[in-house]
Design a protein around this nucleic acid. Structure first.
Length: 307
DNA sequence: AAAACTCGCAACCGCCTAAAT
DNA sequence: TATTTAGGCGGTTGCGAGTTT
């Protein structure tokens, strides 16, 4: 029978410690495991003197006390791997955790809920929707790769079968391979680190261009009044530019036209925390769209689009 | 300065499955 | 073969710290 609340008598429940572990409890658990090894958690709970359930002991050990547990912020490459593996496997936290040495399923789950789902909420899209997955693949992941790859040699491959595991590849940089076919056009490293990334499913992400933007080259000074780039609308809008420089998909308010050299905006829709490095500039948008055009198998006749 | 709010994370809960009896 | 037990997993909760109002 599983160790549920109902499997204990009231008396037993009252004797059990709950909540945060004390230093003494940690010492006791660590010492016991040092002598007897891991496993047999219920026996451990009974014999160690800890007034905890076996499950609680197991969790405390695996998620916190075990020596190889890594603590601290997830690195960009770890975040990237989580995004990548989650897109393949969904909420299989334990399975994902196996590919991130030292990270626990709990930590990864927390990361997903607090960071990733937050972005989806703010964008008002379902975190499991195709739209959000596209955005993650096409914008967030490449930005992480830029962070990750700025001092690395990056290499993409579509080959899923390699001699090393993904976690090996995370541990043994710089040769990292991302095995998501949807990113096959998202190359980085061979040229400028600001090389735009082109989504596979362009039409779902890039809106049609207005007629006056159908010719290149564009410059930051080109006037496209009141136009901002909205990933999730069918056209252009003043609002909802996205701060992707920080790997956030947080909507920001384009309180100044984004065709100026740098866009403005923060989480709180004011300009007080303006930081040009953290926002897409119009140059970047132009580069991205240029790349969209040049990367098309059949050149897209933008002028034919009338949004 | 304090109340309200948000965030990150450790811990718990309940369900499920495999192993043991 | 049926029942019991232990352990694993994903979802959820609650608390402390930090931030905003």
């Amino acid at each position: 029978m599983s160790e549920t609340r109902g499997s204990h008598s009231k008396h037993e429940d009252m004797e059990l410690n709950r909540g945060p572990w004390t230093v003494e409890e940690d010492k006791l658990l660590t010492r016991y495991i040092a002598c007897h090894g891991e496993g047999r958690w219920n026996l451990l709970a009974r014999c160690s003197g800890l007034r905890r359930t076996g499950k609680s002991c197991r969790l405390r050990w695996l998620n916190y006390l075990k020596p190889d547990v890594r603590r601290g912020n997830l690195t960009p490459e770890e975040q990237l791997l989580i995004l990548e593996l989650h897109s393949k496997w969904g909420n299989r936290w334990s399975r994902i955790a196996h590919h991130l040495p030292g990270r626990t399923d709990n930590e990864i789950k927390n990361y997903w809920r607090t960071r990733v789902q937050k972005q989806a909420r703010q964008l008002k899209v379902d975190a499991n929707s195709a739209k959000f997955r596209d955005a993650v693949r096409c914008y967030w992941m490449p930005r992480l790769l830029q962070k990750f790859g700025s001092s690395q040699t990056m290499q993409y491959s579509l080959e899923a079968n390699t001699n090393t595991t993904i976690s090996d590849r995370v541990q043994h940089r710089p040769c990292v391979e991302i095995i998501n076919p949807s990113m096959q056009r998202c190359q980085l490293g061979s040229s400028s680190s600001h090389e735009p990334q082109v989504p596979e499913n362009r039409s779902s992400v890039f809106p049609p261009l207005p007629a006056n933007m159908s010719e290149f080259p564009w410059r930051a000074s080109d006037e496209i009044p009141g136009v901002a780039f909205n990933l999730f609308s069918s056209g252009f809008s003043m609002n909802n530019a996205y701060d992707l420089g920080t790997c956030d998909l947080t909507p920001v308010s384009a309180s100044a036209p984004i065709y100026s050299d740098l866009a403005y905006g923060t989480d709180n829709n004011d300009c007080s925390n303006y930081n040009g490095d953290n926002l897409w500039s119009m140059d970047e948008l132009c580069d991205m769209l240029k790349s969209y055009v040049s990367g098309a198998d059949t050149k897209v006749p933008f002028s034919d689009h009338n949004s």
